[in-house]
């Protein structure tokens, strides 16, 4: 299971790196149809391009699904089987949107310290007031890579700021990472289901399951090919699904 999680999160991280290289906030996601293991949609932040503060990666993914499957029952049907892999914890708005669409599961890299909706600020995915179906959120997959991409972004935008506030904020930190308080995001049972009992020490110590490793190549190499790669995968899924529906009819 961990290998599958890593495979898809690598795509999301590459897409976030693509966003960074093209002047956007480095946050991205891929939507994976769990039963078939196929990528069905992807998204990256486009708040700068669209001028809209709500143009988050998750909404781009949802919009792609709406274009292919319409907005009604077929969309909900696909969403129930979808695992969203997103580099940064969904904000409260996106966490709420995914719950209202009854997403299967959310897997994310690092916490969203300011707006996190899967446990950091509010735990929308398990609340009562948001409609839809509650979902499990799994944090900590390629967490350090996701954090590093955000740090690259902030160092860059600080350089451009007219009056950078102090030196500490401009220095790129490659070594220190905050701890990961797992229980804020995921229950003990769900953690074991996801990672196995052997990993429980990380749950209790708030440490990364991958230790101190950071895959520098993944976040430093340019990856402009990722967009075409994901597009092709999404088209394949749509074709396959249309055939299947025709056969069933």
């Amino acid at each position: 299971m961990l290998e599958v999680r890593l495979k898809h999160m690598r795509s999301a991280v590459r897409l976030a790196k693509f966003a960074l290289d093209h002047g956007e906030t480095p946050v991205a996601c891929v939507f994976v149809h769990e039963p078939s293991g196929q990528v069905v949609a992807y998204g990256m932040n486009y708040t700068n391009e669209s001028l809209s503060g709500i143009a988050h990666a998750e909404f781009m993914g949802i919009e792609q699904l709406r274009e292919r499957f319409g907005g009604g029952e077929e969309l909900m049907c696909v969403m129930r089987d979808v695992v969203v892999y997103v580099t940064v914890e969904p904000c409260v708005m996106c966490a709420s949107a995914l719950k209202q669409l009854e997403v299967g599961k959310v897997v994310f890299g690092c916490a969203n310290e300011r707006f996190g909706g899967n446990g950091t600020v509010i735990r929308v995915n398990g609340d009562r007031c948001t409609g839809g179906r509650g979902y499990v959120a799994v944090p900590g997959i390629l967490r350090r890579e996701a954090i590093m991409l955000l740090r690259y972004f902030y160092v860059r935008s600080n350089e451009r700021a007219p009056k950078p506030r102090n030196k500490a904020e401009r220095r790129l930190d490659r070594n220190a990472f905050p701890s990961l308080p797992w229980s804020r995001y995921i229950g003990r049972e769900s953690f074991v289901e996801e990672f196995g009992e052997k990993m429980l020490c990380h749950f209790d110590d708030s440490t990364d399951i991958f230790g101190d490793l950071v895959d520098w190549d993944l976040i430093d190499e340019p990856c402009d090919w990722i967009l075409e790669h994901l597009k092709t995968q999404c088209q394949e899924f749509a074709l396959h699904r249309r055939k299947k529906i025709k056969l069933e009819v």
Partner: peptide
Amino acid sequence: PCSMCSMALIHSR
């Protein structure tokens, strides 16, 4: 507004 929309208003300042 619901959780999604009340948060969207924050993002929109």
